[in-house]
Design a protein around this nucleic acid. Sequence first.
DNA 1: AGGATGATGAAG
DNA 2: TTCATCATCCTA
Length: 171
Amino acid sequence: MTAGIIVETEAYVAAIDPASHAYRGRTQRNRSMFGPPGRVYVYTIYGMHVCMNVVTEAEGTASAVLLRALEPVAGLDIMRARRGVGVKDRDLARGPGRLCQALGITLVDDGHDLLSSNLWIANPTDAVEDRRVLATPRIGITRAADLPWRFVLAGSPFASGRRTTSRTPSP
DNA sequence: AGGATGATGAAG
DNA sequence: TTCATCATCCTA
């Protein structure tokens, strides 16, 4: 069993978001995003990695949250077996592709229900104060690159991208 | 039927 | 910074 604390996510809202895979409508790949909420949307990226999303809106409305990084909590030995011996704790699930590899997520998991499968998201044991969550632009996209829809636990060494410690004051 | 493009990662 | 690597989607 593997587990971790989600420390970095990105939101994709098809209706108003050109960066969403579902912006141009339903396709074979993105069909999970149009399904009921609480399921996962898993897809292949760059021909070699997979990324995992949580579907968030009602059936028919495509919207999802990409899980980008975890702070590993349990099963680190299993994660390392999947990711490679010698991989540092910090690198086990830092990045969406690595996260899936560490958890053993594959395309087979696409569409799985988080409420009735062996893959789920637990209630937080400790609430995170809003002030500790930073909103930044999303990573690796070209369209709608300015929207601050990446959410990261401030200062977490387990988050990908540039290390952020504080809110950037708006100009 | 074919070409361009990625919600990345690893190595140098 | 470069490149590996290919499913998916768009255009024709």
